[in-house]
Amino acid sequence: MAWLARRFGISFVLIWVVASIVFLAIRFVPGDPAELLLSQGGAAPDPGAVAELREQLGLDRPVWSQYLGDLWRLAHFDLGRSMQDDSPVVEAISRRLPRTLELIAAAALMAVLIGIPAGTAAALRRGRLFDRLASAIAALALAVPIFVVGTLMVMLFAQTLRWVPAGGYVALARDPAQHLLLLAMPAVTIGLGLAAVVFRMTRAAVLDVMLRDYIRTAHAKGVAPSRVLRHHVVRNALMPVVTVLALHMGTLLGGTVLVEYVFNWPGLSGLLVSAVNARDYPEVVGIVLVISILFVGLNLLVDIIYGLIDPRVRR
């Protein structure tokens, strides 16, 4: 269990470093944030207003005191108040985060359910029609940017065929059917590209594992091919697939920004875009921190999955 404790330790250090960097980035960006904020109209800002804002943002205190204060509040899940409507940032985030996570979970589920079986099947039929067809579809799915898929899907299914609404959100509790209907398009949009990634990785990993000596041993034992596949090939091939999934979680989290925008899905990323446009520092910082922590947590989860799949890691 020492490896697990070490992984947790590393994750905490990373979160601390991330928080520090975000703090530094805000404090040391050229120009005074308060001035920058108030000067958006083009006219010179009123010095009194700047001073007031500086005090509100805590910019008048020494840097180390600001830093310690920020860390202290972060440790207590206090991310400050939004500059747009003065509501606590934590509140807005905790309202919207589950929606984004739901989107990601649905997309990842779809990617795994399609990508792993299809990748395995393509590897087993290497060079045959199914393999070529699936590989070509995957190449195309990888090449179309996520917002293009989303936009084209809106055009086709919502505007032309009118099968589904163009976007929006209804709480699950209020109308489960409508909720799932609205979830479908954004989830498929993200899931498509991810499924292509998982497919390609699974195919390559299965091909690689099938060359290993222990697969020859399994065949030499007279084990049925279906069992060799399930017990020996797939489990060993999962390692690199999990790695790639983890690496793509970053892209995936980023992808939700575009997809939520396209489909009007009121998740965390939508909040981020509006916060960026409004230059709402506390909110941007809060969201970036939360997503980064999420990302670090995901990587920790992947490490734990590694340990479960491969006993050699548990050292």
Partner: peptide, 15 residues
């Protein structure tokens, strides 16, 4: 690497 790419970009664009 702790910052997802698009997020990193958004953070810098904000600043």
């Amino acid at each position: 690497l702790c910052f997802p790419p698009l997020l990193l970009a958004l953070l810098v664009v904000t600043l």
